[in-house]
């Protein structure tokens, strides 16, 4: 009986590895990816492949030649970043733009901070925002989704939020814009009819992913739900005050990157708070910032900026929002 293993307790492990968690996230993303393939066809497929290859390659090269350390691309985090980045780009993005975005996302937003778990900002969003600021024209040229069955475009290429933004700037009221664009109803947009980034195509597909993540206990609902609640509340109050200048809750909830952002980007482990209380504060912050940017900002869409801004606050939230501790409750 020689050479038994000795280690401190516990002696068993839950074996719920990072790799498995990342795989679950990828599975949750599958519905929206498939829907985007269906409606945007080859464009979306090429975009996904480009992002995947360039993200993985960037991480591999950095780990191999700059860090000269362990190569951990198999943990799946780079895959998640790649898929999310591709979902955040307009369908007609040229492949070289996608490559630049991937390199920025992995090399600058992730690896310079020390790799997985060390980054302050969500890598995919940094990639997207970098592209949005650097290549504004490319990044705001939207192709309308078209199914394989109909060759007729559902409606013009601009995103619903951009339409509203443009309309309001040129002096029209919200109702005028809606009247001019009959496709702009929440019901329409839920089923793969919204123009915009690849991943904004179908609210239903995103919600399926959300439910999957919740069932598998990969994420907790706090962040997502508090973002939704804040957006509904804020847009509700504003649109009640002046329905001609401000869009309503349902429109805001179902348009743009809000669903994608609130379900998949804001809930990123690395860049979101740990405690429940912190998550709710984080979610409220994103909701408020998103609505402020949408209503008053120069950009029609503000989810990415809102999440990135709130990412910066996470260490502070973590410092002050502690979990509910045992032994500090007053007994009755």
């Amino acid at each position: 009986m020689a050479n038994t293993i000795v280690s401190p307790a516990p002696h068993i492990h839950g074996r719920n590895e990072t790799q498995i968690l990342m795989r679950e996230v990828l599975r949750a993303l599958a519905p929206v990816v498939l829907v985007s393939f269906y409606f945007y066809g080859l464009n979306a497929i090429l975009l996904q492949v480009t992002c995947l290859v360039s993200c993985l390659l960037t991480e591999f090269l950095i780990q191999k030649y700059i860090q000269k350390g362990q190569i951990t691309i198999s943990d799946g985090s780079a895959c998640v970043t790649a898929v999310l980045l591709a979902l955040n780009l307009p369908p007609a993005t040229p492949f070289w733009v996608a490559i630049i975005g991937s390199i920025v996302a992995i090399a600058i937003a992730k690896m310079t901070f020390g790799g997985l778990g060390q980054n302050i900002f969500n890598p995919a969003l940094v990639g997207r925002v970098f592209l949005l600021i650097s290549f504004p024209v490319v990044m705001t040229t939207w192709t309308a989704p078209s199914s394989f069955f109909s060759s007729v475009d559902a409606f013009s290429g601009a995103t619903p939020l951009a339409l509203i933004n443009e309309g309001l700037k040129s002096g029209l009221s919200v109702q005028d814009v809606f009247a001019a664009n009959p496709g702009l109803t929440p019901a329409q947009m839920s089923f793969a009819r919204a123009g915009g980034s690849v991943g904004e195509i179908s609210v239903i597909a995103l919600l399926i992913g959300f439910v999957y993540l919740l069932v598998k206990k990969v994420i907790k609902p706090h962040i997502t739900l508090s973002i939704w609640a804040t957006v509904i509340l804020m847009s509700g109050i504003f649109s009640l005050c002046d329905p001609t200048a401000y869009t309503g809750p349902l429109f805001n909830l179902f348009t743009g990157g809000l669903m994608l952002g609130s379900i998949f980007m804001a809930t990123d482990y690395v860049t979101s708070p740990m405690s429940n209380k912190g998550m709710i504060i984080f979610g409220i912050g994103i909701g408020v910032l998103t609505m402020l940017i949408r209503y008053f900002g120069a950009y029609p869409e503000g989810v990415s900026f809102a999440i990135l801004i709130m990412n910066m606050v996470v260490p502070l939230i973590n410092k002050y929002c502690k979990p509910v501790r045992y032994g500090y409750k007053k007994n009755k």
């Binding site: 020689a2 050479n3 038994t4 293993i5 000795v6 280690s7 401190p8």
Partner: peptide
């Protein structure tokens, strides 16, 4: 000679 294998941190 080792009599057991340590596997902790």
């Amino acid at each position: 000679p080792k009599t057991n294998t340590y596997e902790g941190l």
